[in-house]
Design a protein around this nucleic acid. Sequence first.
DNA 1: TACTGCTTTTGTCTTTCTGACAAAAAAATC
DNA 2: GATTTTTTTGTCAGAAAGACAAAAGCAGTA
Lengths: 229, 229
Amino acid sequence: MTKFYLQEDKLYVSVDCIILGFKGNAINVLIIKRKFEPLKGERSLMGGFVRRNENIEDTVSRVVYDYTGIQNVYMEQVGAYGDVGRDIGERVVSIVYYALIDMELFDEKLEKENNAEWVDINNVGQLILDHNRFLDDTLKLMKRRTATRPVGFNLLPEKFTLPQLQLLYEAIYQRPLDKRNFRKKLFDMDILEKLDEKDKQLSRKGAYYYRFNKGKYDRLLEDGDYFSL
Amino acid sequence: MTKFYLQEDKLYVSVDCIILGFKGNAINVLIIKRKFEPLKGERSLMGGFVRRNENIEDTVSRVVYDYTGIQNVYMEQVGAYGDVGRDIGERVVSIVYYALIDMELFDEKLEKENNAEWVDINNVGQLILDHNRFLDDTLKLMKRRTATRPVGFNLLPEKFTLPQLQLLYEAIYQRPLDKRNFRKKLFDMDILEKLDEKDKQLSRKGAYYYRFNKGKYDRLLEDGDYFSL
DNA sequence: TACTGCTTTTGTCTTTCTGACAAAAAAATC
DNA sequence: GATTTTTTTGTCAGAAAGACAAAAGCAGTA
């Protein structure tokens, strides 16, 4: 082991995870009441320290798994936040990620076990430290991403209906969308596969299930085309 | 000083800076040949360790100042890179920023002093470690940003001509733009002030100088409008 | 002083994309 | 079989983007 940097400072490095899911008509975020000091009992995002021999994304996966029971989630880095006074007492550089999960896969046992709850992203109250800022920055980023890349699908089950997909995008954009225009754009991209099965939970007529076709999307990307809903 | 986190690991945290300037018809990036081990003599971005009592952005400002002599530059975080094996020997989490500077303000003495040189972003050779990846990610981000926010102006002097501005955007987009359409969009946004002075360096006729008007741009933003060139 | 050469400056038209808009079809329930 | 609810589908108008060429200003030179 080399010793080039011996005279430099070392800092705590943590990750904070914004775990997002789609439920009903709203995007929800998982928050917890902290079970340990400092700030025990306060509302907080899920975090964890990056260990010496652990890649940052592995820390995120570990935290997401601990709180949801889900593996291999879609995640994206929001940024690193490291102002000297941002944590209490000790200097901690926090690297923020958001993860998009299919809430059908969420392990509900963990909800009580972890003092966790899902809250509508428009009604998150006050969180500890600079976690509200993390969330605000995340939502801006996530909205930009879902508008330009097909990552929104990670919030839905593998099979979903068009009304479901539209509700999702209405929740993301926070405005109603026109059904015909929405479908027009969607079909023009040709990235969905229509299945022969209908969902009859939510309506008499039933809506056909669709599936996202990653292969077609990747080809679209190669041709220099873009995703836009 | 509290001691909550005593059992956790601490890591080295550094910043790496991608300093970009506009010269001739191309965006240039400042690179150096390292003066110290490890990897002495290899081509590299400029970096520095984050000190215990220093905000991350202050580290960036320090590094940028050391290599350019310029203060108060426009900067944006690209992201944190912290894979276990990314640096040599020791675990170092690097937080990458890019900075946009007006090359007229660059202190040329520092060029030799630091073993530095400006190279066209399309002809950067191989850099140490994962610095090529840093650069690639940065350029993608920078292009997105300059296309949607008026940050490109940071690469020009305070007074600039329209042909200059167009050359800048052609360098960013890497394709020729139509003069009339470019100006149409620009004037529609109404964020430039025409000055009474001409630049006669580059042409007999001379081109009028313009100045960016931040006040008008901010008002544009408030109205929910967007920048787009 | 008029002519040449180079660069800046300016407007119209066509095409494309976006956004508004309403009626019919399918299936369950009564 | 009538009613109710939700899904499914196409056209038209306005806005935005992109293609395109001629004239004007200035310096230098004949």
